[in-house]
Amino acid sequence: MPVDLSPEALEKGETMIQAKQLVKNYDAFRAVDGVDFDVQKGECFGFLGPNGAGKSTLMKMVYCFSPRSAGELSIFGLDPDLKPAEIKNRIGVVAQTDNLDEQVSVIQNLEIYAGYFGLSRRETKNKIQSLLGFMALEAKSKARIKELSGGLKRRLVIARALLNDPEILILDEPTTGLDPQVRHLIWAKLRELKGQGVTLLLTTHYMEEAHELCDRLLVMDKGKVLDSGKPRDLVQKSMPPYVLELPATLQKNLGALPTAVHMEAHGDKLFLYSTSPDVLEKVAVSLSGEFRIRTTGLEDLFLKLTGRDLHDSD
């Protein structure tokens, strides 16, 4: 695994998070199994993996919610077992499930949360004003949480995570279940934060999101790292550049495939990969119907790495 553990990187004080052989057991079940990664200042680092891969568990260890079972972990060079309050004072967390105080208003939610960080009355007021503006929540500031849509709640949770000016913002599936407009708004805001030097750590099931935001990715399954690196490198390293997608029903119509073509089945689809678009073109014209050849991306890599079986059902 290409982890940058070089002494220079560490010495420059640029490593924000570092994990070595990190393990998390829930009783007899091992949810995270020997994971190494590091996150550098100002980058956006993403965890990808199917349901139950261990992404949230990994993040919970980073934001000092779950104690690790084995391995090494440091955030800002501090050990989460020893200095949780110091670490948590400097990070912002958007957990997978919204956990707002449902009974009270948007503003009150922010005021309550600001109290946990010991912000003064004036700091709280100023910060809330600017955050409501930043996440476009002003119109809803007096609304109770029950009255908010999923997208508004998510924006509020993100705003809340920014109250303490975090150096690292940790987001567990920030845009799951949100409409495209909200998703784009959130992406824009996250990019803006990154531009201000905030380090981002996120998980997502959307390959588009990973592509849009992440500088580096770590693909995991069953608690183990499958691969990691820059999105483009990852795809180039393990995938042929072109793919032809076909319905699985056409399998019987396919003759003998050229040796330069590699076939995989996922769900009701067949994926024919090749380094040459011409070879795929020939296969496509041999079939009746219109089939487009496209370049491979993260989605293809993800399916390849994490296998074809459905997870959480085995």
Binding site: Y63, C64, F65, P84, A85, K88, N89, I91, V93, A95, T97, N99, L100, D101, E102, Y113, Y116, F117, G118, R160, N164
Partner: peptide, 14 residues
Amino acid sequence: MDHNYDSMMVTPLG
């Protein structure tokens, strides 16, 4: 149900 403590646990509170 509401997971309010989860939201408190990710602040300096223990």
